[in-house]
Amino acid sequence: MWKGRDVISIRDFSKKDIEHVLKTAEKLENELKEREALDYAKGKILATLFFEPSTRTRLSFESAMHRLGGNVIGFAEASTSSVKKGESLRDTIKTVEQYSDVIVIRHPKEGAARLAAEVAEIPVINAGDGSNQHPTQTLLDLYTIKKEFGKIDGLKIGLLGDLKYGRTVHSLSEALAFYDIELYLISPELLKMPRHIIEELREKGVKIYETSDLEKVIGELDLLYVTRIQKERFPDEQEYLKVKGSYVIDCALLARAKEGLKIMHPLPRVDEIHPEVDKSKHAIYFRQVFSGVPVRMALLGLTLGVVE
């Protein structure tokens, strides 16, 4: 049952749940091609509570709600709200749910969305809780892959960058474990995927290759998911510069890739993908951004109970 359900962690999702969200998103995207706006959520109000700023995610949710025919209220950062005056999260949620039908929350503390969902009677969707979860990003990533390839099974997928601290790649790999895929984990030694996650993935039957050498494996991949490497992760700048240089995606590197290789990135990027790549057939990261809207429409519609 989707009506009233919360979307907090990808851990709460079964493969069937994921497939249902992807199918619903596809249906809504097709309907949008015929009409600019739908009216499923007519008269419904979404509250977007952004206790830390994330303009992209907020705009994507707001766009999704408007496209569903609903309305949006909310705040974009905690400094403009009563939170600054010391109000507890519990009280903020209890108040906001009097004004709305569904809540989207982003919060700097891990577990905040789970707590909000326990307090609220109405559905709560997690738009990022500290370094923990960002399930709608994972779902839109899966949607993009499925749309671009027509399937997820059978793909050879490379995850590149900060695999140690990157919550995006952790959640994505957990979700990909539902499918029959091969994972190439490409990262500097210092930023390797945590052992416990690798073990969990292997137990679920995912074939995993670990390497720090992107050039060596680029020719194998169907999909390369690029993430940012943060300077703060390195003990000294020289080490950082050395590593950073070896993971820049440019056309010279892509000359050695498969014809059909697709490149994704959760954005914003810094310089890990050269702008010259943007117009190549490999680049799908802006289409990936677009996927956020139908996927969030699906989640809003399903949890509101206005879409089956």
Binding site: S88, L89, R90, P108, K109, E110, G111, A112, L115
Partner: peptide, 12 residues
């Protein structure tokens, strides 16, 4: 044990 966990700052 996570100092940034919501359970350490809110009533839960």
């Amino acid at each position: 044990a996570n100092p940034n966990c919501i359970s350490n700052s809110e009533y839960t």
